[in-house]
């Protein structure tokens, strides 16, 4: 099925249901969240389908870099048809996107929503963001029925991503920095045990660097609570599922080695942290 008009090839490609849509979209700069850029992608089909934890891929135009970049969705408004994304300009592609989008509204290819979403649970939860991984979590918090206690961690105050709406949608907000330049000095895992004790939370939702996810998984296991982690890996195909580059070993089915390489873009990015065979990854 094609979703819209557009000459020989429809301008919006996708199927009925909640699967991914490939289209072009107006992309504009909205503001900054700490050192990170927040951009708006005007893509109604994606805004209607997206759920917290999912991602989209955006073309980065204007050089010999070809591949689309995946970005976690930080918010989706079906009413306005706008999806927002928060990103760090760290590589060649994202630096160029950052420069261009601050100057002009861009017209870019976009595919989404892609991958798995967080599964909602009832009752109090702890929500943990590392670096700009905090961006999608306030959207998640707003969709949950119980209290969400947010912990945001960064290397330093200058790397902190604390979305404005965090205090509105979260029951509490705690900040940690490795160098102590904001909030409490240390790692997110230093403050979570107390938080779990105080709130009785039964689930940790996490988005951030892989070593942080691993540490959170160990903490969750020791407390016998669940941890839903949004993982990341290099992707060639922008997350459609065809290139097999973004794999992560998961213990999700019997097998010779006890794990199978699964695609972060299709079987993830959100996975039950207990399934990750960390010993078979480069974060071992």
């Amino acid at each position: 099925m094609t979703l819209g008009p557009g000459g020989t090839t429809p301008a919006v490609l996708g199927r009925a249901g909640d699967g991914p849509v490939a289209t072009r979209a107006r992309v504009s700069w909205v503001g900054d969240v700490g050192p990170y850029a927040r951009i708006a992608v005007a893509a109604p089909w994606i805004a209607r389908r997206a759920r917290p934890g999912q991602f989209l891929s955006l073309e980065v135009s204007g050089s010999d870099a070809l591949l689309p970049r995946p970005f976690s969705i930080a918010g989706a408004d079906p009413g306005s048809g706008v999806v927002t994304v928060v990103f760090a300009a760290v590589g060649e592609g994202t630096r160029r996107l950052d420069e261009q989008v601050r100057r002009d509204t861009l017209d870019l290819r976009v595919t989404g929503p892609l991958g798995t979403a967080y599964t909602a649970v009832d009752g109090p939860v702890v929500v943990v963001g590392g670096g700009y991984g905090a961006a999608p979590l306030t959207w998640l918090a707003a969709t949950l029925s119980g209290d969400a206690h947010l912990v945001v961690g960064a290397a330093a105050a200058s790397k902190l991503c604390l979305p404005e709406q965090a205090h509105d949608v979260c029951a509490s907000v705690a900040v940690t920095t490795v160098d102590g330049s904001a909030g409490r000095q240390g790692m997110v895992t230093d403050v979570i045990p107390d938080l779990l004790d105080r709130t009785g939370a039964g689930t940790i939702y996490a988005c951030g660097p892989m070593p942080m996810l691993r540490a959170l998984g160990e903490l969750a296991a020791s407390r016998r609570i669940a941890c839903q982690a949004a993982t990341e890996e290099h992707m060639a195909c922008g997350g459609v599922g065809v290139c097999m580059t973004c794999v992560l070993p998961l213990r999700d089915a019997p097998g010779e080695r006890g794990w199978h390489q699964r695609r972060v873009c299709v079987e993830g990015p959100v996975v039950d942290e207990r399934l990750i065979a960390w010993e078979a990854t480069r974060w071992a």
């Binding site: 010999d64 870099a65 070809l66 591949l67 592609g93 890996e233 290099h234 992707m235 060639a236 290139c243 097999m244 580059t245 973004c246 794999v247 992560l248 070993p249 080695r257 199978h260 390489q261 078979a280 990854t281 480069r282």
Partner: peptide, 23 residues
Amino acid sequence: REGLPTPRMTETPSGMINAIGLQ
């Protein structure tokens, strides 16, 4: 075949390099 370890791909000028290992 489970294929090779990650990272399996890197972007290069007007192209990319991959080693998946026939997963």
